[in-house]
Design a protein around this nucleic acid. Structure first.
Length: 964
RNA sequence: GGGCCAGUGGUGGAAUUGGUAUACACGCGACACUUAAAAUGUUGUGCUGAACAAGCAUGUGGGUUCGAGUCCCACCUGGCCCACCA
């Protein structure tokens, strides 16, 4: 690298390409001219980066990857004639900023300013089109006044409410956290184990928007990756079920449980409540082992979430002696347990336990020796790869196969029937009083035409649920336990009844293991036997009173109707997502604009008095008491009630760090507006964001919160659309060359400033785009930058070959290549396939180099294509061609399909699947002619070795395949 | 434990979506220029071969196909997200 640096300096001395001079020159000119923006033109394009938190460490080479991509797009769209909005700002409130300030003994307002300056300096060197006139800093009172304003609107609509429920508390960060801020029960920031702490909190009723947040993910305007959408769906975690009542026998009390599987209710053998459940207190008089229960509760409470998750395999609980719950469906009395595997925060905090059909309940039941009652029978369905049947043409890929092993010999009977004709609901006969065995027999006969068999007992209990008992003695690695059906008359086949719809054939064991993927089926059985001792899928109801014989789905419907009619329950939708815990007990955040008056209660700060300024104080360490450090500032806290003028106290909690980023994209549109957070007309013109680029780590926080706020702003008429972000593209991580994340801690950070100093900003930008697919994680390698630098130098040197007189038609191949490259660049930039764009530009330049001269028109095209990636050199060369206006005021070139040469194509000739020669023929040459040429080819003739072709496949323009 | 994604030369990666695998770049070798080195240029570079002969090669094993990096099945490895959500 140093070597390169020296030599590049020498190159400068020779008057060659000098990024250090050129780039400074153009960066200055662009700054002065405002980079030719016209936002409110007819065609707008809003391209946005997830704005950074300006950390003290500054940028490393991984950060700009997304910014370079958006800059390429912004410049490309500008060349295409759009009015491009491409702003940048700082998300500077929050814990990281505060912790950084504490550590460096600075006030956060000071350190934030300092860090912003560092970031801005680093970004400036890379040559972005960011419009700094629209810069946003979330900690600027003129910005957070509107964050506070939005909070007030939420409060007014009842969407911000006070809660006293226990919340997630990080003892190290000394603040409450939202559910979204946890990672496996630990604080996402510091990794401390999070505790539950009862604390007064402001909470945003995000769950009220859950359905809309979920539904609008399907909108075609939301061009997001499926994986991000999935993460959001998962996070929202909607589940439909019923809430129903289990009365407590002999009391007035009742227990409400939520379940998605009412169909298994007849299998309920006990019920469980969470340790936090109020029922325990309500019924304390009836609980005979109250002492022990209390002890358990204490233990459960002191258990960290870590223990609750990591020791999940060891479920614990205790029976509430003296009380019993009544199953509303059959009047059966079942015991009530407290166990911490039931979450207090989800559903009703109580569940009906069906060990036969729920793995968690099963585990608990085994541990506490509770009965297991199976009420849902499986139906057999084995779908897998097609078994090749002797002498039969097999076309269907999805057909159903069953393997039955010969009891004494090494062979299998393979039963096969087409897809859609699975064995079906074995057990369907129960309704008519048929035995299960009879039902299975009937199905097999009907489906396979094979009559002489009996059913082994080994598997039946597992499959059909009668007298269900987990069988630990079954060794699933033993092939003999895989059979469902045993044939009695081994020599008979169903051939005479074989209509072609189904078939049975004997196969040798070797053949089976070699030719058929028995593994798959083995795997299925294994799941039944080992992993899934409980049957958790839908099936056919058995032992379920009047509901016996129904399918699970049908039973759920009818049972819900019954419950509703009997007033014992109703349909209910639950979400995993919680309401958003919105207050933090820290200093560095937006103050919540509410005051508490003894007389009037909670009163909003009038909008005209916004912003409520964060007081500037010397000491702002968190208290750890659950009170914000602001509470200690009497001068600030004590205020006057806006309503009655009496004594009042300010709310001292602050907003979480995610508040400011919930709406910043709106402020960029109208950053200086003092009347509204955004002018309605401008908003309607510029929204939604056309392209949003950032990392996947924001999938369930920023992107969910922002959508929630946007929908709310839509509801109160502030914005014109329901969704803020149209197309979302996620950039991949750039790791250090050792494969680890770049971090001070590892000492593997590469600063973009160094790379820019050594190779120039253009080479750096090109390399980041060239190194690999944009969405992929990739390791940084500074050695690779020389490649893009060389590429730029080649473009520079091409100046000497530019000919103003060279005729445009002088070289049709060149013309064709130029048009192909335009096409490739235009299409691939749109698809974020920047690496292949750069490759094709390199091909073009390499080809130009080999020419004696390059027509000026083609050189102009090259500069335009390169400009989004390497704007400085493009601008410089453009001006050297005599242009007086910026290259970014020029027009992106269009390609002409007719200029792309297609007269001759090369056709590969394969003999038995192997390429033996490549023919170059005029396009449109017909099969006959190509075949003739191919057969005349010496190499082809050698490989044909005199044999006559059995079959010839011809794909025009591509391939001729000869089969002998 | 569940879900999603990936695995191609010494390295980063291409491959028109089932049709000539390894484009482009790094690195490395040879040559030219040079007193010399660097830079630059020319050229070579998947592996086995003396070979522009012939094989063998896209994590492993099977399958479908005239033809598979691409489709199907199973397995192995790595990554990301979620994780007692009833």
């Amino acid at each position: 690298m140093n070597l390169w640096n020296k030599t590049s300096e020498r190159t400068l001395m020779q008057g060659d390409y000098r990024p250090s001079i050129i780039e400074k020159k153009w960066q200055k000119i662009w700054e002065e001219t405002g980079t030719y923006r016209q936002y409110f033109r007819k065609k707008k394009y809003y391209v946005l980066d997830m704005f950074p938190y300006p950390s003290g460490a500054g940028l490393h080479v991984g950060h700009p990857r997304g910014y370079i991509a958006t800059d390429v797009i912004a410049r490309f769209k500008q060349l295409e004639g759009y009015g491009v909005l491409h702003p940048m700002g700082w998300d500077a409130f929050g814990l990281p900023a505060e912790q950084y300030a504490l550590k460096n003994k600075l006030h956060p307002s000071v350190s934030v300013k300092k860090n912003i300056a560092t970031f801005k300096g680093q970004l400036a060197k890379i040559g972005f089109t960011h419009d700094w006139e629209r810069e946003i800093d979330t900690t600027d009172p003129e910005y957070y006044r509107w964050t506070q304003w939005i909070f007030l609107q939420l409060w007014k609509k009842g969407l911000a409410y006070e809660s006293f429920d226990p919340i997630n508390w990080c003892p190290s960060c000394k603040t409450g956290l939202a559910n979204e801020d946890l990672e496996q029960g630990k604080c996402e920031r510091c990794g401390s184990t999070v505790e539950k702490k009862p604390l007064r909190q402001w909470v945003l009723a995000m769950t009220r928007y859950a359905d809309r947040l979920l539904k609008d993910l399907e909108s075609p305007e939301l061009r997001w990756s499926e994986s991000i959408k999935d993460q959001q769906r998962n996070w929202i975690g909607r589940s439909e079920g019923v809430e129903m009542v289990f009365p407590i026998a002999g009391t007035e009390s009742e227990l409400r449980v939520f379940t998605t599987r009412v169909d298994t209710v007849f299998g309920c053998t006990y019920v469980v409540v969470a340790p936090e459940h109020p029922l325990i207190d309500v019924l304390s008089a009836d609980i005979s082992n109250l002492e022990e229960v209390r002890k358990y509760l204490k233990r459960a409470a002191s258990k960290s979430d870590l223990e609750r998750t990591e020791l999940a395999k060891e479920k614990t609980g205790i029976k509430l002696e003296g009380i019993e719950a009544v199953n509303p469906f059959n009047g059966e009395r079942v015991p009530v347990y407290v166990a911490d595997y039931v979450l207090g925060s989800y559903g009703t905090g109580a569940v009906m336990a069906v060990p036969a059909h729920d793995e968690r309940d099963y585990e608990f039941a085994v541990r506490y020796q509770l009965p297991i009652c199976n009420v849902v029978a499986a139906y057999v369905r084995m779908t897998g790869a097609c078994a090749p049947l002797e002498g039969k043409e097999t076309t269907s890929k999805d057909c159903v196969t069953a393997f039955i092993k010969h009891p004494t010999e090494k062979k299998y009977l393979v039963l096969r029937w087409p897809d859609g004709h699975s064995v079906g609901f074995v057990g369907g006969g129960i309704e008519t009083g048929e035995t299960l065995e009879a039902a299975v027999s009937r199905e097999v006969v009907e489906e396979t035409g094979f009559r002489n068999f009996s059913i082994t007992e080994t598997l039946l209990p597992h499959l059909y649920g009668h007298g269900y008992k987990p069988r630990k003695d079954v060794n699933c690695h033993d092939h003999d336990t895989f059979f469902l059906i045993q044939l009695n008359d081994l020599e008979r086949k169903s051939s005479e009844e074989d209509t072609g719809e189904h078939a049975a054939v004997w196969m040798e064991e070797d053949m089976v293991s070699e030719k058929i993927t028995l593994d798959h089926h083995r795997f299925v059985w294994k799941r039944y036997l080992e992993v899934q001792r409980t049957f958790c899928e839908d099936g056919i109801l058995v032992n379920s009173g009047e509901f016996t014989g129904l399918t699970s789905a049908e039973a759920r419907k009818r049972m819900t109707v019954w419950l509703t009619k009997e007033r014992l329950g109703k349909k209910k939708v639950n979400y995993k997502m919680h309401d958003w815990t919105f207050s933090r007990q820290r200093y560095w955040g937006e103050p919540i604009p509410l005051v508490r008056c003894d007389a009037c209660g909670v009163v909003p700060v009038p909008e005209k008095d916004l912003p409520v300024l964060l007081p500037k104080v010397k000491s702002y360490e968190p208290t750890g008491t659950g009170e914000s450090p602001l509470a200690g500032i009497a001068k600030w806290v004590n205020t006057v009630c806006p309503k009655c003028g009496g004594k009042a106290r300010r709310e001292t909690n602050t907003m979480p760090q995610w508040a400011g980023s919930c709406w910043y994209y709106l402020r960029f549109i109208d950053p200086k507006n003092t009347k509204a957070l955004v002018d309605k007309r401008k908003e309607a013109k510029m929204m939604p964001v056309d392209l949003y680029v950032g990392g996947t780590e924001h999938a369930t926080r920023h992107l969910l919160y922002a959508r929630f706020w946007h929908k709310f702003l839509f509801d109160i008429g502030v914005v014109s659309g329901e969704e803020p972000f149209g197309r979302l593209v996620n950039q991949g991580l750039i790791t250090a060359s050792d494969g680890r994340k770049m971090s001070k801690r590892w000492g593997n950070v590469v600063n973009p400033d160094e790379v820019v100093a050594d190779f120039g900003a253009d080479a750096f930008r090109l390399y980041e785009m060239f190194m690999g697919p944009f969405g992929q994680t990739i390791a940084w390698n500074t050695d690779g930058v020389v490649g893009t630098r060389r590429f730029l130098e080649k473009i520079w040197k091409l100046q000497g070959k530019v000919s103003k007189t060279a005729s445009r038609v002088s070289n049709r191949e060149m013309e064709s290549l130029v048009h192909q490259t335009i096409r490739k660049a235009t299409v691939d930039i749109e698809d974020f396939k920047f690496n292949t764009v750069v490759s094709s530009l390199m091909v073009l330049v390499n080809t130009f180099e080999k020419q004696v001269s390059v027509p000026i028109s083609q050189y102009r095209v090259l500069l335009l294509l390169v400009a989004p990636f390497a704007p400085h050199i493009a601008e410089e060369l453009w001006s050297r061609l005599g242009n007086t206006k910026s290259i970014f005021l020029a027009k992106w070139p269009e390609w002409d399909e007719s200029k792309i040469l297609t007269e001759s194509v090369s056709i590969a000739v394969q003999v038995n699947g192997k390429v033996r020669t490549v023919l170059t023929v005029a396009s449109g040459t017909d099969e006959k002619e190509v075949t003739r040429l191919a057969l005349a080819d010496a190499n082809v003739r050698t490989h044909l070795a005199g044999r006559t072709p059995r079959k010839i496949i011809f794909i025009p323009g591509k391939i001729l395949s000869i089969v002998v």
